[in-house]
Amino acid sequence: MSGVESTQQRTGRRLVNVAAVLGLLYLFAPIVVIVVFSFNKPLGKFNIVWQGFTLENWASPFSDQALTDALFVSLRVALISSVIAAVLGTMIALSLSRYRFKGSGAVNLFLVLPLTSPEVVLGSSLATLFLSRGVDFGYTTVIIAHVMFQISFVAVTVRARIRGFDWTLEQAAMDLGASPQRAFWRITFPLILPGILAAWLLSFALSIDDFIITFFNAGSLVTFPLQIFGASRVAIPPQINVLASMLLFLSIALMVGALLIESRRQRMIASGALKRKK
């Protein structure tokens, strides 16, 4: 085909572009509204009609005490659960990709179950389990619940990242006199760290975001999504938009961080630590 387009082809290409722009608008419109309305000056309790521009909300983002508390609960839960999940999930990924053992097929299957099951099922069955064991709902139960679904994400992500890792590097380290522990911490771990960090960021975001499973297992603990949901019937203060925008910018920052990590990983691939698929 030559580079010259027929009228038909040009029309087709334009239609595709229009569809793409509309699709992106559809995706980003809610986000834009959130950020824009964080600068709104609402008249009543509900920040839903544009009244005028102000920076007041951003000057006092933590003025809504209950909302601020809920945000810090969420951050704390996300931090603790994602660290636990990153450690355990990485261990699962390492054992699954290095060894064939009895039941490794079953582990592989169970790993994707939490990813595919409806959250309502996971949340309610976990709640039943806690109730029947007489466990008090609170931080512990929420963290356990979050770790449960994060582990799968971490294990699957890390396993995908270390597929094709050149294990002869570990052999070479031991050949040079390093103990198996030293070989792991000095060679394998630094090389798979970008994958682990990416998985950790993902599970952190999943935890902050989770509503359904948390709802079933929180008891009197109020996380950020639970607080917004509960408050939305009485009031929607602009601070919600401010904190949500902050979270948005935080996750954008984290994503940029992940991209930087990824490009470091690409450089390592180029240098041969991770073999390309043949």
């Binding site: 050149d166 590097l169 090389l191 240098s271 041969g272």
Partner: peptide
């Protein structure tokens, strides 16, 4: 055979 040099 592939040298197994530590890339980092």
């Amino acid at each position: 055979q592939q040298y197994a040099l530590f890339p980092h």
